[in-house]
Amino acid sequence: LQTQKPIATLTGHRNPVYSIAFSPDGLTLASASSDKTIKLWIWDFDKLMAFGCNWIRDYLRTNTPDSF
């Protein structure tokens, strides 16, 4: 969020996406587009966890006060 850089690009709709929603378990994303399609995106939870852990490690490495 801080860098405002995308972590993934989902391609599939031909027109702009106007609505998204996650499933209750957080593993599926639904997107609705003006091209009159709905797409379901299945997240690879292991890859997301690896990305998150790497991000946290890098953040702590560069943002930890010297007093720690």
Rank of each mutant, 00 (worst) to 15 (best):
G52I: 05
W55R: 08
A8M: 12
P65K: 02
T9I: 15
Q4D: 08
S67K: 14
L48Q: 00
L60S: 04
A21S: 10
F51N: 12
F45G: 08
Y18D: 02
T37N: 10
H13P: 00
R14M: 12
P24W: 03
L29G: 00
Y59L: 11
D46S: 14
G12I: 09
G12P: 06
P65M: 03
K36R: 06
K47A: 14
H13T: 02
L10A: 11
G26H: 02
L1Y: 07
S23P: 07
I7L: 13
A8C: 07
F22I: 01
L29V: 04
A8F: 04
G12D: 09
A8S: 15
T62I: 10
T11K: 14
T11I: 12
Y18I: 05
K36I: 03
R57Q: 13
I20G: 04
S31R: 04
H13S: 00
I20D: 01
K39N: 01
T64M: 09
P16S: 06
K5M: 07
L29Y: 03
L29D: 03
T62K: 14
D44W: 08
K47G: 05
W55L: 10
W55T: 09
H13N: 01
T62W: 10
F45D: 13
A21H: 06
M49H: 08
F45H: 13
Q4A: 07
N63S: 11
N63G: 02
W55D: 05
Y59F: 15
P6S: 07
Q2C: 11
T11V: 12
Y18M: 01
D66Q: 15
S34T: 15
A8L: 14
T28Q: 13
T64I: 00
L48R: 02
K47I: 09
M49G: 02
S19A: 13
H13D: 02
T9H: 13
K36V: 03
F68D: 15
G12H: 02
S23I: 07
S34V: 13
S34D: 12
P65V: 03
I42G: 06
R61N: 06
H13R: 01
A21L: 06
S67F: 15
D35P: 04
L60V: 09
F51R: 13
S34A: 09
G12L: 05
K36F: 07
P6F: 10
R14P: 00
T3A: 15
I38S: 02
P6V: 07
G26V: 02
Y18T: 07
P6H: 11
G12K: 12
R57A: 14
G52F: 08
P16Y: 10
H13V: 00
V17A: 10
W55N: 06
Y18V: 03
W55G: 04
K39I: 09
T9W: 11
R14Y: 14
T37P: 01
N15I: 03
L29M: 03
L1H: 07
V17H: 07
L10C: 12
S19M: 07
I56P: 02
T37G: 05
L48V: 10
W41K: 03
N15T: 01
S19N: 05
W41D: 01
S31Q: 08
G12T: 06
L29S: 01
Q4G: 00
F51K: 13
G26D: 02
A8T: 14
S23C: 12
I38R: 04
T9P: 00
A32H: 01
P24F: 06
L60Q: 08
W55E: 10
